[in-house]
């Protein structure tokens, strides 16, 4: 995990494809949240978003043969909104597209596919996705963090 700019108005982290980086990242988000007086909920929700989205790239993401998997995370609080940007170089995948999670069926037939992304989208104030220069770029915004 490479940290290029740490704990000023924003932080910016580049991850390689390792799930264990998630915990270091969670600690950074907690420290950043304390500096910016995030509510406990905001810190939880941002950590959940990072966990679900990064896991999604690492577990389900497909990469071109000559591409080294790379994920960039940026968190900033320019105003009364926390802005989380996750950029990954896996093949085009739009996590904002409808994932149709199963939140209704009975216990025995209940599945869990798509649930992580459903949680992330439900908890963000706004989200947007774009694919540019061979990279997936997801922006999540949280009002009054």
């Amino acid at each position: 995990m490479r940290v290029s700019e740490h704990f000023s108005e924003r932080f910016n982290v580049t991850l390689q494809a390792r799930l264990r980086d998630l915990r270091n990242l969670a600690e950074m988000v907690e420290a950043f949240g304390r500096m910016h007086d995030f509510s406990q909920r905001t810190t939880f929700v941002i950590n959940l978003a990072l966990d679900e989205l990064i896991t999604n790239v690492l577990v389900h993401g497909q990469f071109e043969v000559d591409v080294e998997p790379l994920i960039e995370v940026e968190l900033a609080v320019p105003d009364e909104t926390a802005i989380l940007v996750i950029v990954s170089n896996d093949v085009r995948f739009d996590p904002t597209a409808d994932t149709n999670p199963d939140t209704d069926s009975d216990l025995l037939s209940r599945g869990i596919g798509g649930l992580g992304l459903h949680l992330v989208k439900s908890q963000a104030s706004r989200y947007s996705y774009e694919y540019t220069d061979g990279r997936n770029r997801l922006t999540l915004e949280y009002d009054k963090p």
């Binding site: 406990q40 909920r41 939880f44 939140t103 209704d104 216990l107 949680l119």
Partner: peptide, 17 residues
């Protein structure tokens, strides 16, 4: 916790658990 209860509810687990 309140945060965990929220994601349990969004998941619809409160209706089956």
């Amino acid at each position: 916790s309140r945060d965990i209860e929220e994601i349990v509810r969004i998941s619809g687990f409160d209706r089956i658990i």
